[in-house]
Structure formats: C-alpha cells, structure tokens
C-alpha cells in the first residue's frame, strides 16, 4: 500500500465568482519508505495539498488517502503516526521552545528523552527562551525537533529548511536519512533543489494545482536537455538541422545550443566529424527541469528554453 495516494484532487476556496481553484486535478503517489520530493512554484498548491492530507482542509473533489485512510474523516488515527513541520512555523509566544517541543510530542504520545536531548544539541537550540524571541530559523528548529523526537510512520515537511543555515540543513538531511533507514516515509516540499537531489528518490512537480511531472529523478532527467558550448568548424546551419537540437545561437565564436537527451549520440558524432576545438557540456540538472516547468506560460505549452527567460 502506498503511504499517500492522491487522485484528481480538487480544492476550491470561496463560492461563486470570487472562488479560486487552488487544486485542479492533482495526482500524487508517495510509496511507503521513500523520500518524495514535492516541487512547484509559489502558489502552485503544495501547502494546500499538504493541508488536505492533514485533514485541515476538506477536498472539493477527487480522492486522497494517507495510510489507506481518508484524511478528513480519520485525521486522528492518521495523525498519531504523522509528524508535520509547516513552512511558516508560528509558535506560542509565551511558551519556551522546550515547552512547545514537549507539548507537540506529548500529543503524539511523548518524546524519546535521549533523542530529544541529542536533537537539541545537534540543532543547537536554546530551549529556555520564550518562542517570541526566536528567529525564523529557530522556530523551524523547534518544529523539526518536535517532529524528529518521536518516531512517526510519515513525516511531512513543507519547505523545512528555508530559514536554516547550511550546517543545520545537513543536520536535517542526516535526520531524514535516519528516519528513512528505520522505514519511515517522507514527503518533502522544498525549493532547495540540491536538498531534493540528495534526499529524494522520486519527485512530483506541480503547477497551478496540477501535476506536470512525476517519477524518479533519473527518469525525469531524460525529459530534459543538455546544453552545449562548442568551439567547432561545423556550420551553424548544419548543426541546427540535426534532430534534437534546439535554440542554436553563436556566442563569442562558439555555438551554444541544447540537445534532447536521447539525440545526444547523433549530435556528438556530427560534431566530432567536423572537429572540436573546445567543448563544455552542462548535464541536465533538477534546476533546469524545475525552471522549464516553472517558466512555462501554461503547463501544457511546449517547453521554452531556459536561457530565453
């Protein structure tokens, strides 16, 4: 059974003419035991999806299930095995960080005391301060420690490291790796692509409330183009005519173009035949994939090249 199964999810806010369609047929499958990256531009509907999965918003259409249960009707059962860190953590200003960690873990059955102490150390959080005085990063640490200090089956993170420094990001990654080694499932919504590339086996990219790509990182890379900077004697027109070559231009005597990943062999052969004086090949990155989907005027429209943005 998949940990999260979302099919054709629709969420409409408001009624009548002023209503907004935040989710418009979104699909998302998170397999048990995997770390799943959940990507999309601001306003794409990531947080709305997560709130539906938490049973805080009621879906207007489609289906969603967590551990095979309906998140709206069975929220209590689901939440016993779930830990959540919101994107914008706000805490009770009069409680200390330590008090809040205890409160949140006790609601789920109580923290592992040794784990709590270790996490406080690793994340370098002073638990005696009132939450009012914490910075954004420190508020995030409080929520992260509360999430990690008690075992859960499913961890849901909504941009969890946006306020953390690189050292804390690596502590976060180590904790995610620890809980997945223990068999937990993680849904990670993030804008930090290096983090997603390091942690996630599969990703789902959404836009305007719809899923535009979903799959393993390796399979998604096939969909992208590799960019070439070549110093060559080959005529620009000849290269431009090769199958799979896009957006050819000449820059400082070099040919600059993108190649579909599956057309690479033919292009390389043609270049080799013409002779190469210099060559820079930039492999497809998640960032490119990301930008390609984010930059589209419409999700269905043909891809526009990255450098045309």
């Amino acid at each position: 059974m998949d940990a999260i199964e979302v099919l054709g999810l629709v969420k409409v806010f408001g009624r009548g003419r002023s209503s907004t369609r935040a989710l418009d047929g979104l699909d998302l499958t998170v397999r048990t035991g995997e770390v799943h990256g959940f990507l999309g531009p601001n306003g794409a509907g990531k947080s709305t999806t997560i709130r539906v999965l938490l049973g805080q918003l009621r879906s207007s259409g489609g289906s969603a299930s967590v551990f095979g249960r309906n998140p709206w009707d069975d929220s209590v059962a689901i939440h016993r095995d779930l830990a959540y860190v919101p994107g914008d953590v706000s805490l009770w200003p009069n409680l200390s960080g330590g008090e809040i960690i205890d409160l949140l873990t006790r609601l789920r059955g109580g923290a592992d005391a040794a784990l709590r102490t270790r996490l406080l150390g690793d994340f370098q959080l002073d638990p005696t301060k009132k939450a009012r005085s914490y910075s954004k990063g420190n508020r995030q640490k409080v929520a992260l420690i509360a999430a990690f200090a008690r075992r859960a089956e499913l961890y849901v993170f909504d941009e969890p490291t946006s306020g953390l420094d690189p050292v804390m990001e690596s502590v976060f990654r180590a904790e995610v790796e620890r809980v997945t080694r223990d068999g937990a499932t993680v849904l990670l919504s993030s804008h930090i692509l290096s983090e997603v590339e390091q942690l996630c086996e599969r990703v789902t990219i959404i836009r305007a409330g719809r899923t535009v790509e979903s799959g393993t990182l390796a399979s998604l890379r096939h969909l992208t183009r590799t960019s070439f900077h070549v110093g060559t004697a080959a005529a620009a027109d000849d290269i431009a005519r090769l199958p799979g070559v896009h957006d050819l231009a000449t820059e400082a005597g070099q040919l600059v173009f993108d190649v579909d990943t599956d057309s690479m062999t033919g292009v390389l052969a043609a270049l080799t035949a013409a002779g190469i004086t210099s060559l820079t090949v930039t492999p497809p990155s998640l960032e490119e994939l990301f930008l390609r989907h984010y930059g589209d005027p419409k999700p269905d429209a043909p891809a526009v090249p990255v450098d045309a943005r």
Partner: peptide, 19 residues
C-alpha cells in the same frame, strides 16, 4: 525584561486542555 523560561514542559502541558 523577559525572564528565562523552563526548558521542558510541566506535567499539565500535554493536551489541548492543558495548553
């Protein structure tokens, strides 16, 4: 000034009622 607060919660603070 703000005083320092306890590093861990009292016994009551473990439910919505306690909160």
């Amino acid at each position: 000034p703000e005083r320092r607060r306890p590093a861990s919660a009292g016994r009551l603070l473990g439910s919505t009622l306690g909160l």
